[in-house]
Design a binder for these strands. Structure first.
Length: 406
DNA sequence: TACGCAAAA
DNA sequence: TCGTTTTTGCGTA
């Protein structure tokens, strides 16, 4: 094979540098720090719901999913290396005591709805990314909130019924088995309680004057941090589940932030350029939504691991990648991201698929196809047929063509 | 415009 | 860093 003459000359690099920097300058000038974006993420959502509704599962390693795929694991199970998007049978090897609970999507949808009702109060146009994740733009809310009286920011603490606690504990005691590990423990300690504890700004517990009425109430402040504490507080009161959150001037940063103090924590990047840059500096690019394992590998091959690396190699990247790609990279390396949440268009496609073993005769393949088509047709039916029906017809004709091939 | 690949949940 | 499923967006041809 002849060697590909794909050398990049220092000439080219210098030229690219100028071009990229001109673009970076533009981006910098249009940096927008006016918005307060929040990313809310329920902690180990499916697993948490299952544990809440079945105390037997408390303090046991559990995962929600099937033998072939897990969608979530609780923090107990994570200590064994059991994580979301891992096949159940692998997880069982890592943690033989793992309890795999089949998913109850209807239930998760119901809980998700409860959470969404709260979120909507802070941003009626919030964007739900899945059942357990959402972005909010609380800029407006913050504005209005500044002159809210304390009473409008006061919430009463619903303490758990002591009888319930007793029952739960009794149950736990009687069910306690000589459990425990004969399998690799990856982390010894329990999930960090990263609560920036102490008395959060204005957690006023009125005692003296109003012994009964106001005793168990909390007043939240008017800052973004307080708003998000309030949101998380309300979520926990309403659902007995905890959420983590990130606060930042754009969605890209907010998403990374929500992961920082997980579980049951929050983190804010203050809305000034320096704070953003400090946060970005050592951030591994892999943490950014949109950078997956393949992109990570490609960039790693160029010695790029952190956002600082990404910025430093911007000229080279502009020569190696497509325009959309290098501009996306540049956005990340400058800590830029989307500052508004609108647009939630209609669905663009619908599909069904199944993985099956290699041994599979032509006839079986055909009938499987037919089965999948049936399922897809049903899905289409459910969600208002509209023009999607046309797809169904196209699909059927495809199948007929396939049959010819067999 | 179809198709494959990457990514996210 | 495989394994599964669904949806989306990008790049290539």
């Amino acid at each position: 094979m002849m060697q590909q003459k794909a050398q990049i000359t220092s000439q080219q690099l210098r030229k690219a540098q100028l071009q990229v920097d001109r673009f970076a300058m533009k981006l910098e000038q249009s940096r927008n720090l006016e918005n307060t974006i929040v990313h809310v993420d329920m902690d180990a959502f499916y697993a948490a719901v299952e544990m809440r509704d079945n105390p037997q599962l408390k303090d046991k390693p559990i995962a929600v999913g099937s033998v072939s795929m897990l969608s979530t694991s609780n923090y107990h199970a994570r200590r064994f290396g059991v994580r979301a998007a891992m096949p159940g049978f692998i997880a069982k090897k890592l943690c033989p005591q793992l309890i795999i609970v089949p998913p109850n999507f209807d239930k998760y949808r119901a809980v998700s709805k409860e959470v969404k009702e709260i979120l909507a109060e802070y941003d009626p146009n919030f964007m739900a990314m899945s059942l357990d994740e959402a972005y909010l733009n609380i800029t407006q809310h913050l504005e209005e909130r500044q002159n809210w009286p304390e009473d409008k920011r006061r919430y009463f603490i619903k303490t758990r019924n002591p009888v319930e606690i007793d029952l739960a504990e009794e149950e736990r005691d009687t069910l306690r088995e000589p459990e425990q590990p004969l399998s690799p423990l990856l982390f010894e300690d329990s999930p960090p309680d990263v609560q920036p504890s102490g008395n959060p700004a204005q957690q006023n517990f009125e005692e003296q004057n109003h012994p009964q009425a106001l005793q168990n109430s909390v007043v939240f402040g008017t800052s973004a941090e307080e708003v998000v504490k309030e949101i998380r507080f309300r979520i926990e009161q309403k659902t007995t589940l905890t959420a983590s959150a990130g606060i930042a001037p754009n969605t890209m940063l907010a998403k990374v932030c929500s992961d920082k103090n997980k579980p049951d924590g929050q983190y804010q990047i203050l809305p000034n350029r320096q704070a953003v840059m400090d946060f970005i500096k050592d951030l591994p690019i892999r943490k950014v939504s949109g950078i997956g394992k393949v992109t990570e590998k490609m960039l790693k091959a160029l010695g790029i691991v952190t956002c600082t690396d990404l910025y430093q190699q911007r000229a080279l990247l502009s020569l190696l990648f497509s325009e959309t790609s290098w501009q996306y990279f540049l956005h990340i390396s400058l800590g830029l991201g989307s500052t508004n949440l609108e647009r939630d268009g209609e669905r663009k496609s619908m599909s069904v698929e199944r993985t099956f073993s290699e041994i599979s005769k032509a006839e079986e393949q055909y009938s499987l196809c037919q089965e999948l088509c049936g399922e897809l047709a049903q899905d289409l039916q459910k969600e208002g047929l509209k023009y999607l029906n046309i797809l169904c017809i196209v699909l059927l004709s495809h199948i007929l063509n396939m049959k010819e091939g067999f």
